[in-house]
Amino acid sequence: MGWQNAFHCEIDPFCNRILNYWFPKAQGYTDITTTDFRCWKGKIDVLTGGFPCFDGDTLVLTSDGMKPIREIKIGDGILTKEGRFKNCNAIMRSSQRHITCLKAQGIYEPVVTTDNHPF
């Protein structure tokens, strides 16, 4: 990919397990509000962040076509970042209700998400 994940910070235990699986050499933190990141000063070229979850109307490309994410069921084939379809194996719901609308150059429709969803 041309980059290395030095660390990640995720408070949700399930999501943290996923990040630790995909980035086993990265330092994993849990609570961003209590973690001291001073040890990384001068060592990071690019810092990114995001927060879950998507609004229920956000469209997801499935093996059956585009579907609102609220209609996704366990077993549905969902297009992954690797460009292949994998079956959904878990549904996560958030009580978070702070909605953010993200607009980016090159994206036709804005992405509507709660303010705590990484993507």
Rank of each mutant, 00 (worst) to 15 (best):
G2N: 07
L59H: 02
M92E: 13
I44H: 00
T80V: 03
H8Y: 13
P68C: 08
N87W: 02
P110C: 07
G49L: 09
D45Q: 03
Q96N: 15
Y29G: 02
R38E: 04
G77Q: 06
L19M: 12
D64C: 09
W3C: 10
L59C: 06
H117Y: 09
M66C: 03
D45F: 01
I72Y: 04
N116W: 13
F23W: 08
A90L: 11
I32C: 05
R17S: 14
N16G: 15
N5E: 12
N87G: 11
V112W: 05
P52K: 04
V46D: 01
Q105N: 13
C39M: 13
N116K: 15
T33L: 12
L47A: 06
R70S: 15
R84E: 10
Y21P: 08
I32N: 02
T62D: 04
Q4Y: 08
H117N: 13
T34S: 10
V112R: 02
S63Q: 05
I91H: 01
K81C: 12
N16S: 14
Y108N: 15
E71L: 02
Y21L: 12
F14I: 12
G50F: 05
L59S: 01
M66L: 14
I11D: 12
T35V: 04
L61T: 03
G83S: 09
S95R: 10
L47N: 05
D45Y: 01
Y108K: 11
C9G: 00
R93S: 10
F119I: 11
I72L: 06
I72S: 07
A6G: 02
G50R: 00
T34H: 08
Q4N: 10
K67F: 06
W3G: 08
D36L: 01
K43G: 03
I74Q: 00
A6Q: 02
G42M: 01
F119P: 09
I107C: 11
E82F: 09
I74P: 05
W3K: 11
A104T: 10
S95C: 07
G56R: 13
L79Q: 03
T62S: 05
I91K: 03
I69R: 05
C101A: 15
Y21T: 13
K73T: 07
P52Q: 02
H98R: 08
P68N: 09
I69A: 04
D115I: 15
D57I: 10
D36R: 08
L102M: 11
A104L: 08
M66D: 05
Q96A: 12
F7A: 03
G42C: 06
H117V: 12
T33P: 04
D12G: 08
D57M: 08
D12A: 11
K25T: 11
Q27C: 05
T34N: 01
P110V: 00
C53R: 08
G65F: 00
N116F: 07
T30I: 12
H98F: 12
D12Q: 14
I32L: 09
I32A: 06
M92L: 14
T100P: 04
Y21A: 09
D57E: 11
T48H: 06
T100R: 13
I44R: 05
N116L: 15
A6P: 03
M66E: 04
T34E: 08
K103F: 09
G28F: 08
A90E: 13
N16R: 15
D31P: 06
I69M: 10
D64F: 07
T48G: 12
D36G: 05
